[in-house]
Amino acid sequence: MNPDRLVYMANQIAKGFRLKTEDRAVADTLDHIQKFWEPRMRREILAVLASGGDGLEPIARKAVEQIKVS
Protein backbone atom coordinates (compact mmCIF):
# COMPACT_ATOMS: atom_id res chain seq x y z
CA MET A 1 0.00 0.00 0.00
CA ASN A 2 1.15 3.53 -0.67
CA PRO A 3 2.89 4.96 2.45
CA ASP A 4 1.24 8.35 1.94
CA ARG A 5 -2.16 6.66 1.94
CA LEU A 6 -1.37 4.86 5.22
CA VAL A 7 -0.28 8.14 6.81
CA TYR A 8 -3.51 9.76 5.60
CA MET A 9 -5.57 6.91 7.01
CA ALA A 10 -3.81 6.97 10.40
CA ASN A 11 -4.28 10.74 10.61
CA GLN A 12 -7.99 10.43 9.73
CA ILE A 13 -8.49 7.84 12.46
CA ALA A 14 -6.73 10.06 14.98
CA LYS A 15 -8.75 13.07 13.85
CA GLY A 16 -11.93 11.17 14.70
CA PHE A 17 -10.81 10.95 18.32
CA ARG A 18 -9.32 14.44 18.67
CA LEU A 19 -12.03 15.71 21.01
CA LYS A 20 -11.02 13.19 23.67
CA THR A 21 -8.07 13.62 26.01
CA GLU A 22 -4.77 13.03 24.24
CA ASP A 23 -4.11 9.78 26.09
CA ARG A 24 -7.59 8.46 25.22
CA ALA A 25 -7.27 9.60 21.59
CA VAL A 26 -3.93 7.81 21.25
CA ALA A 27 -5.33 4.65 22.86
CA ASP A 28 -8.43 4.66 20.68
CA THR A 29 -6.39 5.29 17.52
CA LEU A 30 -4.06 2.44 18.42
CA ASP A 31 -7.01 0.16 19.20
CA HIS A 32 -8.60 0.90 15.82
CA ILE A 33 -5.36 0.24 13.93
CA GLN A 34 -4.71 -2.99 15.84
CA LYS A 35 -8.26 -4.26 15.22
CA PHE A 36 -8.86 -3.20 11.63
CA TRP A 37 -5.50 -2.98 9.87
CA GLU A 38 -3.96 -6.18 8.62
CA PRO A 39 -0.40 -7.00 9.77
CA ARG A 40 1.07 -5.92 6.41
CA MET A 41 -0.42 -2.44 6.81
CA ARG A 42 0.87 -2.18 10.37
CA ARG A 43 4.37 -3.21 9.25
CA GLU A 44 4.28 -0.62 6.47
CA ILE A 45 3.22 2.25 8.75
CA LEU A 46 5.98 1.21 11.17
CA ALA A 47 8.42 1.51 8.26
CA VAL A 48 7.12 5.03 7.66
CA LEU A 49 7.78 5.81 11.32
CA ALA A 50 11.28 4.29 11.14
CA SER A 51 12.10 6.55 8.20
CA GLY A 52 11.09 9.66 10.12
CA GLY A 53 7.30 9.49 10.25
CA ASP A 54 6.82 12.35 7.80
CA GLY A 55 3.23 13.54 7.73
CA LEU A 56 2.02 11.75 10.85
CA GLU A 57 0.07 14.05 13.14
CA PRO A 58 1.06 13.87 16.85
CA ILE A 59 -1.79 11.60 18.03
CA ALA A 60 -1.37 9.25 15.07
CA ARG A 61 2.40 9.19 15.58
CA LYS A 62 2.07 8.28 19.26
CA ALA A 63 -0.37 5.49 18.36
CA VAL A 64 1.91 4.15 15.62
CA GLU A 65 4.83 4.09 18.06
CA GLN A 66 2.86 1.53 20.11
CA ILE A 67 1.77 -0.79 17.30
CA LYS A 68 2.44 -4.47 17.68
CA VAL A 69 2.57 -6.63 14.55
CA SER A 70 1.40 -10.21 14.86
Rank of each mutant, 00 (worst) to 15 (best):
M1I: 03
N2W: 00
N2M: 01
P3A: 01
P3Y: 03
P3I: 00
P3K: 02
D4S: 04
D4Q: 07
R5Q: 05
R5I: 04
R5A: 10
R5S: 06
L6P: 05
L6V: 04
L6F: 03
V7L: 03
V7P: 01
Y8T: 13
Y8Q: 14
M9A: 14
M9E: 13
M9W: 06
M9Y: 06
A10Y: 06
A10C: 11
N11F: 04
N11V: 05
N11E: 03
Q12W: 01
Q12E: 12
I13Y: 10
I13G: 06
A14K: 02
K15N: 04
K15E: 13
K15Y: 10
G16K: 12
G16Y: 11
F17S: 01
F17V: 01
F17M: 09
F17G: 00
F17E: 05
R18P: 00
L19M: 10
L19C: 04
L19G: 12
K20W: 02
K20V: 00
T21V: 11
T21R: 15
E22K: 14
E22N: 06
D23I: 11
D23T: 15
R24W: 08
A25R: 03
V26D: 02
V26E: 05
V26P: 05
V26A: 08
A27S: 15
D28Q: 14
D28V: 01
D28M: 14
T29Y: 09
T29W: 09
L30C: 06
L30T: 05
L30N: 08
H32G: 02
H32F: 15
I33L: 15
I33G: 05
Q34N: 12
Q34G: 06
Q34E: 15
K35D: 12
K35M: 12
F36R: 10
W37G: 10
E38Q: 14
P39Y: 12
P39C: 14
M41V: 04
M41F: 08
R42P: 05
R43Y: 03
R43P: 00
I45C: 07
I45W: 02
I45E: 06
I45Q: 07
L46D: 08
A47W: 09
V48P: 07
V48L: 08
V48I: 12
L49E: 08
A50S: 14
A50M: 07
A50I: 03
G53R: 11
G53S: 09
D54C: 02
D54I: 11
D54S: 13
D54P: 04
G55W: 12
G55M: 08
G55C: 06
L56W: 07
E57L: 07
E57M: 04
E57R: 04
P58S: 07
A60I: 00
A60E: 00
R61K: 13
R61H: 03
R61Q: 03
K62D: 04
K62G: 04
K62R: 13
A63C: 07
A63E: 07
V64P: 04
V64M: 04
E65G: 02
E65A: 07
E65N: 01
Q66G: 00
Q66S: 06
Q66V: 01
Q66T: 00
Q66H: 02
I67T: 11
I67R: 02
K68C: 05
K68T: 13
K68A: 12
V69K: 09
V69L: 09
S70T: 09
S70Q: 13
S70W: 12
S70G: 12
